[in-house]
């Protein structure tokens, strides 16, 4: 298996646009660390392309951005990329991070069966607040930053050489730090942001191998 990352970047609504824009940090760190990264962008985030690219490049780590449910992860315009009972075997032995809704509940459990890899995802809907005044330039949105930078820590920490368990804990720890920081600010939105970060904190789970690394 290649020591590289396959990153999905759908961008067809505000939610996926924010996830995609904030994923630039993952691409940047990967580049700095000399780790191979292939981004699947916008309309290319379809099942055929996803399976073809994964079969060809055989990346050890997959980072999914986008919508999903308990049994599926979606790509562009909610096209199913991976679904229980159809192709979850494609994730076997890989490090998977799914920044999508509730996919850890069933899909995550299924894809770590007899696998040396792991699945980091959410058993609750992943959520974030954003400021409607910044939708034209999401990267400057300081509200969304609280959520998306802390969740970025999962793949970034793995790319930097930490194992899956350490990376999972670092991201969760950063969420708690952000809760503390935002509550200290005492702005009108502080409590809403803290509650939402708490939702992601309790919802993020690591299933499978806690010791696995991108580069052994």
């Amino acid at each position: 298996m290649r020591e590289g990352v396959l990153l999905t970047l759908p961008k067809y609504d505000l939610v996926t646009e924010y996830l995609t824009v904030f994923s630039k940090d993952i691409e940047r760190v990967s580049n700095e660390k000399g780790i191979f990264l292939k981004s699947l962008k916008e309309t290319a985030v379809n099942r055929k392309e996803f399976e073809d690219v994964l079969n060809k490049l055989n990346c050890k780590m997959i980072v999914f951005n986008g919508h999903g449910d308990e049994i599926s992860i979606f790509g562009n315009r909610k096209e199913v990329l991976v679904k229980v009972g159809e192709n979850e075997g494609i994730l076997k032995d890989r490090i998977v991070y799914a920044r999508s809704c509730a996919a850890a509940s069933i899909l995550g459990k299924e894809c770590i069966r007899n696998s040396k890899g792991c699945f980091i995802g959410y058993v609750l809907p992943f959520e974030f607040y954003f400021d409607s005044e910044w939708i034209g330039n999401p990267i400057k949105d300081n509200t969304a930053k609280w959520f998306l930078e802390s969740s970025n820590l999962v793949p970034i920490s793995i790319i930097k050489g930490n194992n899956s368990g350490e990376s999972h804990r670092r991201a969760k720890n950063q969420m708690l730090k952000n809760i503390k920081k935002v509550l200290r600010l005492r702005t009108p939105e502080s409590f809403s942001i803290a509650e939402s970060l708490w939702n992601n904190y309790i919802g993020q789970v690591l299933l499978g191998n806690e010791e696995v690394k991108l580069c052994e």
Binding site: P125, Y129, E189, S192
Partner: peptide, 14 residues
Amino acid sequence: QVPSNLKLAMGTYG
């Protein structure tokens, strides 16, 4: 608690 300039993105619920 929620200022009117904020929007919540909640997974598949949009």
